[in-house]
Amino acid sequence: MSSNDPYEDLTITTGAVVEPNTSLVNKTGSWRQFRPVIDQDACIGCGQCDTFCPDQAAKPIGDGDVYGIDLDYCKGCGICEAECPVDAIEMVREEA
């Protein structure tokens, strides 16, 4: 864990108030059971996955022509797979 982890050496204050930026270290993608895999050749860069992603985990990559998934936060809901207009996204089971 990095030294700027707000949870490091945490004692519980009244109301469990902590320093900001907790979302930077809470990698909620660890809850995921299925991982979206984007076929970069098929992706047309329309951004529908970004529009529909409930966690803003789909992002343009490179020159912005194609999209990728931030696996630190993607929870594997599969909405992007359902919404992709060119079926470029496949949900793959995470290995244990």
Binding site: A16, V18, E19, P20, T22
Partner: peptide
């Protein structure tokens, strides 16, 4: 108040606690 919301000294209140902290809260 013990803590206050203050843009000049931001704090996180009630956002997310991990299993190793929630029981104590």
């Amino acid at each position: 108040p013990t803590y206050t919301l203050d843009p000049s000294d931001p704090k996180t209140m009630g956002a997310y606690a991990r299993p190793e902290h929630w029981m104590e809260t």
